[in-house]
Simulated scan of single mutants.
Amino acid sequence: MQGLHQVGRTAHGRRRVRRRGALAAVIAVLGLAAASCTSAGDPSTGGAPVPAGNPVSAADRAQAALADCPNPSGAPVAGGPLRGLTLNCLADGRPIDLTAALAGKPALLNLWAYWCGPCAEELPLLQQFSDRAAGAVTVLTVHSDPGTAKGLSRLTGLSIHLPGVEDPDTKVRNAVGAPAVLPISVLLRPDGTVAKLIVRPFKSVDDISATVAAELGVKA
């Protein structure tokens, strides 16, 4: 009889361990969801993305006062996933060959959207990091939503003047095989190949600096 009681207690203990493990997994998933935004579109429209083709005026671009996108340096590029991808510059709307424009120095591409809360917390850190890096690393924002005018307005409100590109069809995310969450940072080597995908928001300027140093070998 005592043996049966012991078996019962052991089985009960195992069930409790399994329940605790399941609960821990749920908490971890919820924590990741809280730290990131799913790329489901503008929550103010019930999750539907802003229709493509929304007009963006020259006044919208001028008010944002963004840095111009880099021009191609002629540096050699390898066969990375972004090679040949052309997107429009947020500053003036002109098309740029992404890999050619970034070639020659390490780069950090930050995928974000105007409706993403964690993105709004991270962007000022990226601006500070870019200022600290003083040109050693190109920091380029990638607005991954069709609502370009709203993206420009968001950058204006946050006083972000980093160069950026419009990516209404999430071409960068698809090309690098990133999950459908925001923000995401793509670290590129000088030849345009991907060194690392960072699928989380940065927590501080030092966090960005340490990650860039570890993955790209550039201290800033």
Rank of each mutant, 00 (worst) to 15 (best):
T10F: 14
G53I: 14
A120R: 14
E166C: 10
V77E: 09
A22I: 06
D60L: 12
Y114I: 13
G151N: 03
S39V: 15
D97Y: 06
P146E: 01
K171H: 13
D92I: 08
A91G: 11
P81S: 10
E121A: 15
L87N: 02
L87P: 02
I208D: 02
G84M: 05
L152I: 10
C119S: 04
D97P: 11
T38S: 14
G31K: 01
G217E: 09
Y114R: 02
I160C: 04
L87C: 08
T99Y: 06
S159E: 09
D131P: 10
G80L: 07
V218Y: 09
R83I: 14
A24D: 13
V181R: 00
N54P: 03
T141K: 00
T148D: 09
G31I: 02
S73G: 15
G74F: 03
A65H: 09
V142N: 05
L140D: 00
N110V: 00
L123R: 00
S130E: 10
S39R: 12
T170I: 13
V172L: 05
L4P: 05
L123F: 00
C89W: 05
S204D: 06
P118C: 03
G135W: 11
L23E: 15
S204E: 07
G21M: 09
A33C: 14
D42V: 07
G84Y: 11
I96W: 08
L152W: 05
D207S: 07
L23G: 12
A107G: 14
D68G: 12
L123V: 02
W115N: 02
